[in-house]
């Protein structure tokens, strides 16, 4: 299967297999005018299979959101047909309105116009907790 290489933009590589659509939706990639390719179940030497997303435009990519969604991804930044940077992402200290608190007793379940904020409380085990009720996301 052939998919065109991109001239200027991003290749989001090493996405955990099966998660590309969630990333596509959450990062709002469906609203872009440019070509976006979603490759599912590509072969991976490391993990057996992986997903890849190619974006053929230099957009303002939200790396924090991306890293929160899948901390294992690498982002190749492409300029004039060449990879100019391979970016390994680090987990953001805080994410806003990416995930929803699942605690039915949390104030975020009833308060109007309140952002859903999660704070990274355990960097070793990648644990995020709701800023308000402190319930773990996982």
């Amino acid at each position: 299967m052939n998919i065109d290489s991109i001239k200027n933009g991003y290749v989001i590589d090493h996405i955990t297999a099966g998660r590309a659509m969630e990333i596509y939706e959450t990062l709002g990639l469906k609203d872009l005018d440019c070509q976006v390719a979603i490759i599912s179940n590509a072969k991976s030497q490391k993990t057996g299979k992986k997903d890849i997303i190619k974006i053929d435009q230099n957009i303002d990519l939200d790396f924090d959101k991306l890293s929160f969604l899948d901390p294992n991804v690498t982002v190749n930044i492409v300029k004039d047909d060449k990879i100019i940077e391979k970016k390994k992402l680090t987990l953001p200290e805080k994410v806003v309105n990416v995930a929803k608190c699942k605690n039915p007793r949390c104030i975020t379940s009833v308060e109007r116009d309140l952002d859903q904020i999660f704070i990274l409380t355990d960097k070793i085990n990648n644990v995020y907790r709701c800023k308000y009720c402190e319930m773990s996301l996982k």
Binding site: R105, E111, C130, K131, Y132, C133
Partner: peptide, 10 residues
């Protein structure tokens, strides 16, 4: 006092 957790932080 509030029944919802995190309400005082709001």
């Amino acid at each position: 006092r509030h029944p919802k957790e995190g309400a005082p932080l709001v």
